[in-house]
Simulated assay, not measured.
Amino acid sequence: MPDERNRSFDDLVAEGASVPTEGWDFSWFEGRATEARPSWGYAVSTAERLGRADAALDVQTGGGEVLDFALAEAARRPPLTVATEGWPPNVARATALLRPRGVAVVASPEDAPLPFADGTFDLVVSRHPVEARWAEIARVLENGGTYFAQHVGPGSVYELVEYFLGPQPEERRNARHPDRERRDAEAAGLEIVDLRAERLRMEFYDIAAVVHFLRKVIWIVPGFTVEAYLPQLRALHERIEAEGAFVAHSTRHLFEARKPGTSRTP
């Protein structure tokens, strides 16, 4: 990791505040922060399923980076692949990245119905959706179709959340609990094929990484700005310099669900 001890708090905060936040490319964090990856290898597993699909949808694709990787690794590309995204800068980024692979990117707000006919897709995938809208997922899947996704779990990065916001109510901490999501998926008519959860270590080596992370992953500290949290940022900078990396833990769960019935796809 780079030696940032000789750089001032102001310089580091300014750097973290200036890095573009579009897309889900986290390469800027190399040497500044680390996060362990789930054992199931979501992108590679998605590639395997794309290689068997005929009509695939990636919900909330971000900048399209994960889908781009998965399509590059797939044994074959589905004849139809579509992605949705709600944030305009990401729509443009994903379109530029995915169009060469024949993927149509559709601008669609996260809380709107999916703009597709019933039973359009035999595979729906998503990495870290803001919310899994189970009724819509079930509606656009054909009978026998699969939903395969990696979700953010309960209490994810709560060491950082509670550093800035203080103790949080249990309702917020457990809002993404896999047991709750299982019940919601089943209520929408889906059958759970696989559900696994892991807790993963994260380390932030400088305050620039913290600032950029909170700007990029906006649900960690909603409404975060440097100005609003300047005293906490300065104190955390001094803590990192004195004690080393700030340690937090992300939570992730893998979902594989199936819509009952016989697929029309051979």
Rank of each mutant, 00 (worst) to 15 (best):
E4M: 14
R7T: 09
R7C: 08
L12E: 01
E15C: 05
E15M: 11
A17E: 08
A17G: 12
V19C: 07
V19E: 01
T21Q: 12
T21F: 06
G23Q: 00
F26H: 09
E30T: 12
A33E: 06
S39H: 08
G41K: 12
L50W: 03
L50R: 01
A56H: 01
L57V: 06
Q60I: 06
T61H: 04
T61I: 07
G63D: 06
D68L: 08
A72F: 11
A74Y: 04
P78C: 10
L80M: 14
T84S: 14
P88C: 10
R99Y: 13
G102M: 09
A107Y: 03
S108T: 05
D111F: 10
D111M: 12
D111L: 12
D111G: 13
A117N: 11
A117P: 08
S126P: 04
P129A: 12
W134C: 07
A135V: 08
A138C: 06
V140F: 01
V140W: 00
G145I: 04
Q150I: 12
Q150L: 13
H151L: 13
S156Y: 03
E162Q: 11
F164N: 05
F164S: 05
L165W: 04
Q168Y: 05
E170F: 10
E171M: 10
H177W: 05
P178F: 00
P178M: 04
R180I: 15
R183T: 15
E186C: 12
A187M: 11
G189R: 02
E191R: 09
V193K: 10
D194M: 09
E203A: 13
E203F: 05
F204Q: 03
F204K: 01
A208R: 01
V211A: 07
F213P: 00
F213R: 00
F213N: 00
K216W: 12
K216D: 14
K216Y: 07
W219M: 06
Y229Q: 10
L230S: 11
Q232I: 05
H237G: 04
R239C: 09
A242F: 07
G244P: 01
A245W: 05
F246K: 00
T251F: 02
L254F: 14
F255R: 05
E256I: 13
P260Q: 14
G261N: 07
P266V: 05
